[in-house]
Design a protein around this nucleic acid. Sequence first.
DNA 1: TTATTTTTGGAAAATTTATTCCAAAATTTG
DNA 2: CAAATTTTGGAATAAATTTTCCAAAAATAA
Lengths: 279, 279
Amino acid sequence: MASPHSSSAPPPPADLEALQKRIAALAPDLPKRLRQCAEWVLAHPDRVAVSTVAQLAAGAEAPPSAFVRFCQALGYAGFSDFQTVYREGYLWPDYGVRLEKLRARGDRSAPGLLAAFVEAGRDSLETLAKTLDPADLEAAAALLARARMIHVMGLRRAGPVAGYLAYVFEKMEIPAMNHDLAGRLERRAALRPGDAALAISFAPYSEETVAFAEAAAARGLPVVALTDTLASPLHPHIRRALLVKEADVGAFRPLTATLSLASALAVAVGMKREEALSE
Amino acid sequence: MASPHSSSAPPPPADLEALQKRIAALAPDLPKRLRQCAEWVLAHPDRVAVSTVAQLAAGAEAPPSAFVRFCQALGYAGFSDFQTVYREGYLWPDYGVRLEKLRARGDRSAPGLLAAFVEAGRDSLETLAKTLDPADLEAAAALLARARMIHVMGLRRAGPVAGYLAYVFEKMEIPAMNHDLAGRLERRAALRPGDAALAISFAPYSEETVAFAEAAAARGLPVVALTDTLASPLHPHIRRALLVKEADVGAFRPLTATLSLASALAVAVGMKREEALSE
DNA sequence: TTATTTTTGGAAAATTTATTCCAAAATTTG
DNA sequence: CAAATTTTGGAATAAATTTTCCAAAAATAA
């Protein structure tokens, strides 16, 4: 039966998955310092296995004693017991060997495909870093940062890129509009003086995006293009071109490098706007 | 020639890869016990970060003092120094901090940001290859390949991923439907027996996607999830989870690894369907 | 074989790390 | 507003881990 005192204290989780759930469940009810520990631990699970209490506590901006109390609140005797769960949960299958295996299984299996995509992605990123002209990027960011509103367009394969940019711009509270043709609406009237346009298109270039760039240019807006070749039909209409070349896996071309460039562009625009505001 | 003693040993490697090479190179010339240590360490690199000398020495069937001598033979002051290299080698680089540094240096330039995103992307891909369970990927692909129709849902940050998948599925003529909530329509009636669902969601998880997974599960459809933690609220409803962790740059997390995984999944589904047809 | 050098393992010392404790501060309750 | 309770942070203590040291064993050279 239960021991004379303490009917409570459910046994502490023994595997990482359960432990993380428990932490997440418990966090809201914890006092401030302990909650900081909980949140930091959830955000940096990789560090727990290889750090000392002092280091983790410092990360969570709490004293080590608070961290130990946090472990005890979860039902463990102390930090060491708690850490053990993370250590066992993080015994990684070893790593170079793993990629080798993925590759060895050949292109037909799903994991083999993943290996191919991972490798293609890394190549694309390397190429991007090597070939992109920093001056172009800088100039494109400056140009968009000055705009009252940024009009983004990208269809088909470029669609997700446009969607991602719209999302990031909104997150940063930068006025932006994604011309995604939902409901077949072209919304050209939204293109106003003082705005800027960002057209994303890859071969085979979709007519609508080219027409969009042309319309924006005709209204005097500066147009930045994110595209794959200098021969792109967007060319006559644009102020700056950012070129990305993606490595392909068979007939498929993931958007790895393109999205990294898009991210950098968006954040750069955000920073430039902040600077401008604080001046 | 060199001075009688201390021809000054070369500095010990500071990164994991170099260290492992050095160990392999040194091992054959080491005396028996130290060689045992070297070999055990090469065979179990994951343990080094989370064990004590005593544990590692026991694994290598040598006394702790031998293990310490082994570390010193590599040029480190002792075990602790040696272990640090392993610990840092398995940690996620913290791009938030790195971005801070870029800022502090006054390098708010767009190219500086791009460098950070490229590096974060490469790390994300590496981690993906390292941590994804091939069996999960294989099973998820098989599961979706059997479906009459694949229902995809992903909102906010996951939106572009859902969009990309829908695009690729269409390209491959795989029946798929993106539940993007355009026009606030939920279209639950489309979920029919024989179909499968693919839910994409990252912290903070959007309610709608969780509800979608729940609805699909309630109708008996197998649900595959593409998500970031085991603590995801999608968990109760799904058949298979594919976990991706993206490195973040400051508050921003590009979708590099996620899209590579999505690509591999989509192409694998396509291949499996072709195989099935030709039988 | 003997002398010399290298390697070995256990035990003691030094250091680092975890845990407890308690007075002060903050919060909640009456 | 005062009393009771909870939370906090640092200092003291306890525990663990690492490192050094040295005599004995093994290997090598003469």
